[in-house]
Design a protein around this nucleic acid. Sequence first.
DNA 1: ATGGTTGTGTTACAA
Length: 259
Amino acid sequence: MRIATWNVNSIKARLPRVVEWLGAAAPEVVCLQETKCEDQNFPAMEIEDLGYNIAIHGQKSYNGVAILSKRPIEDVQTGLPGDDGDEQARYIEATVEGVRICGLYLPNGNPVPGPKFDYKLGWMDRLIERAQELLSLEETFIMAGDYNVCPTNDDVFDPAGFADDALCQPESRNRFRQLLNLGLTDGVHVFNPQPHFYTYWDYQRGAWQKDHGLRIDHLLLSPQATDRLMASGVDKGPRGEPKASDHTPAWIELSEPNA
DNA sequence: ATGGTTGTGTTACAA
């Protein structure tokens, strides 16, 4: 079962690219971020025509997450627990063939310091709590999405230039590391440990052409999921297409259960 | 050169 994550930066603007990639790569499960539309405006039919079931949690203009799956989707939950006042559509969970899929769009957090950075850190604390809960239930789960965290300076094309950025702050990195210290595995990194293995390139300043990127899209695996991890990677193809998102898909491959 | 780009949706804001 191949599971991918892709921040599409508007599902409506990106629909031709998404349809093209789903048809060619055909992952079993995809977590999308920054869909940027309300649920009733999500282009569901075009994606269902490719054989996908859909679970969505959107809002107008900003944020928005979705899970696409060729296999049946069960037990959908939207919103990250821990703050009933949080109106931002950044988190969705659903079960596919016994695997709990957690799709997330972690707050960017800039500028530092400020209320947006505080929100980011609080959101990460809630994500850690959710991971602890799923671990205590001994679930097989994947937390996949745009984490807006560069785990180390090897994940940044210009560490000095990003020293003051929310994506690289010690507080952000500490919380990401807390997830790993709970026993989660960075699925892409296991098979691709080389530095500068990016998933995002800014639209500005020719970042793509110069390979001035960041590694901020991650798939973290529970121990039970890690036991089934067969392969992983980043598909840079979509970033080079016309009208591309600034992110490109990252993916992991799990063996079938009891294989 | 205090720049540059994309998207939503309005002429600002987020990334």
